[in-house]
Amino acid sequence: MKKRRFLIRAGVIILLIAIGGCMMVIGRGHTVYFDNKKLEYEGQQLDTYRRINVFVNGEQVAKLSAKERGMASCVGQSFHFDIEATKEKGDDPEQYSFDLSLPYGIDGVIVNLPAIIAGLPQEAWMSEFVPMVVEEEEEEEIVLDDFDMSSDDI
């Protein structure tokens, strides 16, 4: 009886840990930044596109002119997006689809669109977005009030 109880408890704990682990993988949020910017890779010069429209799940998330950046949020490790790229004025837009595998440890991923269209390796078009550190002059004040019942919304 005791052994059975122990096994059930251990099973429940393992199940909860497994569910938690799954949630950490499928729920990991990333911000993907799309750059329509010039790039130089191993001597190869890649120019910007005149216009790039980025679609995620059929919804347009960015409309980029040269040197512009757009962004989209992504939950999970795989990310699919479609683009409609126009190289020069008067050209017909070309359609591309990409599936990315996003690194777990990186919050913000920058994708250089001219480089990914050109078929360069991942190291050329993917980089980590590092937010600028803004020095906060004033320390945030922490108010510890246990008796406050006057909040606006409960």
Binding site: L16, I19, G20, C22, M23, M24, I26, G27, R28, G29, H30, S73, V75, D107
Partner: peptide, 18 residues
């Protein structure tokens, strides 16, 4: 802080809180 978003974030928070 671990950037777990949406329903997975809620389920994970519930599991951690237990």
């Amino acid at each position: 802080d671990w950037q777990i978003w949406g329903i997975p974030g809620i389920v994970l928070a519930m599991i951690i809180s237990v």
